[in-house]
């Protein structure tokens, strides 16, 4: 049943730090966050860690476990051998605040840059109608719990801080795609996603998809289709001419932002 887990946790702040070793009593069925909590309650009361739901729904407890971006609450100890040392470090792409807590404000700044949803007017009865098949595309992207593991793992910004101002990151490509595929939205965000959000910097290595705890196919279902939409707008002369001559179809009702 229970055993003493060998845990290495990064402790420190912006000025520096290092891995501390601990032995923590753990029980059957526990996850890494349980071990961190027990460590906090019994040996290191000031150990900084974010968490909320402990059920993989809120995306607070993102960190790197043995170097892999994971949610602490969804990583089971049973996936490791009892003798294994588990190393927990903060997300690397964001400035550390203290211990496992990082400054993720980059993501909140990028969120502010996305022009908001702008729907068509309601139907005469005051309701709106959309077909299930049409909302499902956006629903996949709205499963995002904003754990920012995709942002953390994306090589465009990981170890390349200088790219951050020009690059919104996979989480926000999801958002652009969601709005672009929304049946009732009236904005055309294709130019913006290419220019300001840096969609073109992504070279679809799918690292984001691999670490997504919600299993969202970020690259295949959001980024690649967005890239295609951007390419259509920019390079396809027939699409360009059509958009000038015929004001119809999905695109005609959309306003470029």
């Amino acid at each position: 049943m229970g055993y003493d887990l060998k845990l290495r946790v990064w402790r420190g702040d912006a000025s520096g730090g290092g891995l501390n070793e601990y032995a923590v009593q753990v029980e059957e069925g526990e996850v890494v966050l349980d071990a961190i909590h027990r460590l906090q309650a019994t040996q290191a009361g000031d150990l900084a860690v974010r968490w909320n739901c402990k059920a993989g729904k809120c995306g607070s407890c993102s960190a790197e476990i043995n170097g892999r971006p994971r949610l602490l609450c969804m990583t089971r100890l049973a996936d490791f051998a009892e003798g294994d040392v588990i190393t927990v470090t903060p997300m690397r792409s964001f400035p550390v605040i203290r211990d496992l807590v990082t400054d993720v404000s980059y993501n909140y700044e990028k969120a502010r840059e996305v022009p908001s949803f702008a729907p068509t007017p309601r139907d005469p009865d005051g309701k709106r109608r959309m077909m299930q098949v049409d909302v499902e595309r956006g629903q996949e992207f709205r499963k995002c719990i904003e754990c920012f593991l995709c942002q953390n793992t994306c090589h465009v910004v990981r170890d390349h801080d200088h790219n951050k101002p020009a690059f919104a990151g996979p989480r926000f490509f999801l958002r652009y795609a969601e709005l672009d595929m929304h049946p009732l939205d009236t904005n055309d965000r294709r130019k913006l996603s290419q220019d300001a959000a840096g969609l073109g910097m992504c070279n679809i290595t799918k690292c984001c998809t691999e670490v997504c705890p919600e299993g969202i196919k970020i690259t295949d279902n959001a980024i690649i289709p967005m890239k295609e939409r951007v390419a259509d707008r920019k390079y396809d002369p027939v699409v360009w001419l059509g958009s000038k001559i015929f004001k119809r179809g999905d695109r005609a009702s959309r306003e470029e932002v």
Binding site: S116, F117, P119, R122, G126, K127, R128, R129, M130, M131, Q132, V135, G138, Q139, R142, L179, H182
Partner: peptide
């Protein structure tokens, strides 16, 4: 309905 106005994507009935 207001949430829908702000971008929520609820599951739909067969008539939308």
């Amino acid at each position: 309905l207001e949430l829908e106005e702000w971008g929520a994507l609820f599951d739909r009935t067969s008539d939308g």
